Simulated assay, not measured.
Amino acid sequence: MDLPPHDFDDISRKITTTTGGLPLAIAVIGSSLQGKSKTSWKVTLQKLKSVPNREVFNKLKVSYDMLEAEQQEIFLDIACFFIGKDILHPSYMWKASNYFPEMELLVLTRKSLIKITKDLKFWMHDQLRDLGREIVRCEDINFPENCSRLWEPEFALEVVQRKKVSENLKVIEIYLHEKDSRLLEMLKFEEIDYSIMCKLARGLRMLRTMALIDSWIAKLPKTIGGLESLLELDLTRTRIRKLPASIGNLKKLRKMSMLQAPIKKLPKEIGGLESLLVLDLNYTKITKLPTSIGKLKQLEIVGVIGTMIRELPNAIWMLKNLKVLNAGYFVKIWREKFQVKFRVYLFLGGYSYQRARLGDCPQL
């Protein structure tokens, strides 16, 4: 078996790591580097880190092309957004798109295109991640804003600010950290305001996920209700204090997070979210839940930890699909009101209680 020169050991290991250890990728790249100078090896390593080697790309794409359409969509979603993320919430999104994630993920796993870790998170070789992102990039090389997925926060922000959002867009993610001072400065004066958000909400019938985590957005336009295909809305740590009544028009929405946002009140129209499964209001400034929450018949998980809520509306106890209730220790839970027929896990001030043991709860 041919081996690289001894003084090539270090860069050889780096190239092997960058390919994700895929035998096919190693074989193809190794053949192309045989007899080449160390400079050529370094250039190849840099290319591998930026854009997939075309020959490797074409070889690996054979496996992708053999997938069914739904499996391809899920593969691209994972490659662009969900590596290292929990499998639960993306599965909700895929189910709402009429996919069968349990079956499709099994196929992707068996084909070694993805892995699911012991703690139920997605994992993917770097080379396969690059393959997926390159496939999306090739949807429109000249005008990447027309692609179906925007996963780079800085570029996604630029597209939104320039109002170049395409009707083909399915997922957009703007996730900013404090260290991104330049991006935060760009958002400081609410440059994502009505004019831009209205553009997002107008005509984007395909948009499934909107994540505006850590952005400086302080208000959503009424036209947000026009995102008829939206499945997930993540407003974690935004500056939003109020939701428009039109939020109730998001009939397909499966998950909504307002975690650590300064919102004080939910509109009664929240009851229109007939497909909602997860409602995360943890550490908001909400003091009371509207009675219309009882209309959320599909709701499975509710989080109100760290809020000023001290008593829950009677209607919440009639939610037959409720499985998890994350509530603060000071929330009053009345046993006679608790009529949920299925097992529910209560988390109160760091303690958890199963439905079958509600009598052990000191507040019951």
Results as ranks from 00 to 15, higher is better:
53 N>A: 15
309 I>K: 00
275 S>Q: 09
280 D>F: 09
340 V>F: 06
359 G>S: 14
149 R>K: 07
170 K>W: 05
213 I>K: 13
195 S>K: 08
303 G>W: 06
36 K>S: 15
308 M>Q: 08
58 N>C: 13
237 R>V: 02
1 M>I: 09
325 L>G: 03
29 I>N: 01
188 K>Q: 13
364 L>N: 12
92 Y>R: 01
125 H>W: 06
51 V>Y: 15
187 L>N: 03
254 R>H: 09
125 H>K: 10
128 L>N: 04
359 G>D: 11
194 Y>T: 01
248 G>F: 12
240 I>Y: 05
207 L>F: 06
135 I>R: 03
39 T>R: 14
214 D>F: 14
340 V>L: 05
178 E>K: 10
342 F>W: 13
331 V>Y: 01
44 T>E: 14
117 T>Q: 08
49 K>F: 05
190 E>F: 12
96 A>Y: 00
88 L>V: 13
95 K>C: 08
75 F>R: 02
169 L>E: 02
239 R>M: 10
340 V>T: 09
332 K>M: 11
143 F>N: 13
160 V>N: 00
97 S>T: 06
179 K>L: 14
157 L>T: 07
61 K>L: 14
111 K>F: 12
261 A>G: 07
131 L>F: 07
277 L>I: 13
9 D>H: 15
202 R>P: 00
29 I>S: 01
225 G>E: 02
235 L>V: 01
359 G>H: 15
3 L>C: 06
263 I>W: 11
339 Q>A: 11
95 K>D: 12
318 M>N: 11
329 Y>E: 09
33 L>W: 02
11 I>A: 08
212 L>R: 02
100 F>R: 05
162 R>S: 05
257 S>N: 04
236 T>K: 11
189 F>W: 05
353 Y>D: 03
180 D>N: 09
5 P>H: 08
320 K>C: 07
279 L>M: 12
101 P>H: 04
197 M>T: 01
150 L>A: 03
257 S>L: 06
323 K>W: 05
321 N>P: 08
154 E>K: 12
363 Q>Y: 14
221 P>I: 10
